[in-house]
Design a protein around this nucleic acid. Structure first.
Lengths: 137, 137
DNA sequence: CAATTCAATTGCATTTTGCAAGTAACAATG
DNA sequence: CATTGTTACTTGCAAAATGCAATTGAATTG
């Protein structure tokens, strides 16, 4: 069972975010959702960081209860659920992009695509718009 | 004793960042360092989220060993050390700013200053420049 | 030199994580 | 329509991380 939301540690907006996704896994799920078009349990499980299924279930439940994602039935296969980011969730896209740019800049072994770094440097806000649009699609 | 760096989970740039600061505390220390001009153990301890001293010592050691901060002697009081962000550390400023903007936007009880939100909306890159400048000073 | 301050460290209980195995519901196959 | 496979979880348990309170030891202050 996922832990219920403990009261926040402070009214700092950074702390507010960390209370919801300050761990090693939650933002990776958002990454999969927002940047990789994934939406099913099995797809998240398949990501290269190899999250354990109990942790994944816990994080999805927390994300849902904190309003960052929604869970819906898959009409064509009732075993599966479809997870989607809410507005609150997609609003984290700029955070993910900055995180990715930072990582790409500071990890000598980064696997970040060169086009991403180039696009960021050339036109950050255009990149954000494009990524945001790709989510809807 | 702080844990030594485990090998990274993947070559994803987001995952790279989370391997270094994917927890509830590390980014708050960076916030104190980059946005609040703090530099001493006792100053970090005093922040409203109330980090425990053993956790703080652990995180400072990790931040140092991952090259995000440096530790220097305080000439005027040799009990104290002065922690400063490196280039790699200050490069996280945009991440902190996006995080803060997201939190300020989505926490109804946020304590984020209105001027911050206004400045972000009006001129994000100007805000970043200003904050970056304030760090050096 | 005694008291205080500061940055940690220690011991210990609690919580979280991670792994492997299991289960229940549904779907696909023959 | 029975069996086999798939999918999304759940469970049990060991290991690691966290959090708290108390303590240490060096440096400063009075």
């Amino acid at each position: 069972m996922p832990a219920n939301q403990p009261n926040s540690r402070s009214d700092c907006p950074i702390s507010f975010g960390l209370d919801l996704f300050g761990d090693k896994w939650t933002l990776l799920i958002l990454r999969d959702l927002l940047l990789r078009g994934k939406s099913k349990f099995g797809e998240f499980l398949g990501s290269e960081e190899r999250i354990a299924s109990n942790i994944l279930a816990d994080r999805l439940a927390r994300l849902e209860s904190s309003g960052l994602i929604t869970k819906a039935e898959d009409e064509s296969d009732r075993r599966q659920s479809l997870y989607r980011a809410t507005k609150k969730g997609t609003d984290l896209l700029p955070v993910l992009v900055e995180l990715a740019y930072w990582g790409a800049s500071h990890d000598p072994k980064t696997g970040a695509p060169k086009e991403f770094v180039k696009a960021y440097r050339l036109d950050r806000s255009g990149l954000l718009k494009r990524l945001k649009n790709e989510i809807k699609a």
